[in-house]
Nucleic acid binder design. Structure first.
Lengths: 171, 171
DNA sequence: AGAGCTTGGTTCAAGTTTGAAACAAACCTA
DNA sequence: TAGGTTTGTTTCAAACTTGAACCAAGCTCT
């Protein structure tokens, strides 16, 4: 089967996209590292927890929401716990389970960092896009995410990467 | 000054975008790691080099094109050199300079991996988007990247003799 | 010419991510 | 109910990234 190479338009879109996502993540990471002493992912963990019932969530659910591996989450939560932003609790329904709970300190840090973070996202992203483009970005992102989440086991070819499923993500 | 929080639409777009970019990079990294034994960035390095005149580029130019730090590039090129995909050469115009050159082995690896990579990008990205959306994605990405690059610290004028334009292919 | 600034690139330590392997609890099922 | 499988989480080593510090070579100005 002969390769369907990218058209010039696709080529341009792909390169622009790669560049933009690298630069944006970078800028956000830098800002949060500066102002909150943690990378974007860690901030997102606090953020998701803060919106969850009782400000706590099971590790697996948290990983699922954030679209990251369990192992990566374990490391991150360990660090956040060390810093007193999060506390681990046992799950009483399932003794295997572990629950991450946002501490008051964690909430305070989040609260302090939020305005700066939003400002950054706004100035680097939304201030540059028209209202229409915001809608387009959402649709495009949803389409991409959907394709990557739909349940593993694809027909035939087994060297195609698969991905875990879940609903929507975080800040 | 009171924070301009994200509107519900912006919120949704942001979260969808974060999820999509994480998932996509992840899928691509996994595919390339599988099929070419290297992460996406490393593949991109080979790809950019392969399209450069004489298949070589100065470290700084390479870093600039890829939107990564010099330090990160140094590490990556060291690894690629160890694997024989890239060779470092001295720059004769500027004795400080170091040039990364793609080896024949590197080119061969790139050549073998390219179809699978393109197929992945296509199936996870372009197959899910309409032609219109591809255009939108490019415009949105350009807008974002532009804002993040015109970032003070870089004087616009550049008369360096060995600076050149890139052509086509998929990084 | 040479002091002092800038640029190109690497180095180093600390932090993060990855994927596979290890464990333990929960869930079957014969 | 023992044995096997699946599920939730952590652990470990190896790979990668970060940012600051460093060094050498070019540049500027006097």
């Amino acid at each position: 089967m002969t390769t369907r190479w990218l058209s010039p338009e696709e080529q341009r879109a792909w390169r622009a996209y790669i560049a933009a996502s690298l630069l944006l993540e970078d800028a956000i990471d830098r800002q949060l590292q500066q102002d909150a002493g943690m990378p974007h992912l860690y901030y997102s963990i606090l953020s998701v927890l803060s919106e969850s019932p009782e400000r706590r969530l099971r590790m697996t659910d948290l990983a699922e929401r954030l679209k990251i591996t369990r192992s990566r989450l374990t490391y991150a939560v360990t660090r956040l716990e060390k810093d007193g932003m999060v506390r681990r609790e046992a799950c009483r329904y399932d003794k295997r389970g572990s629950i991450a709970a946002l501490t008051d300190d964690g909430f305070a840090v989040l609260d302090r960092a939020a305005p700066g973070h939003v400002e950054t996202v706004r100035s680097f992203l939304f201030d540059r896009l028209s209202e229409e483009q915001v809608g387009q970005l959402e649709e495009i992102s949803m389409a991409i995410a959907q394709g990557l989440q739909e349940d593993g086991t694809r027909p035939a070819s087994d060297d195609v990467p698969w991905r875990r499923r879940s609903s929507t993500a975080c800040s």
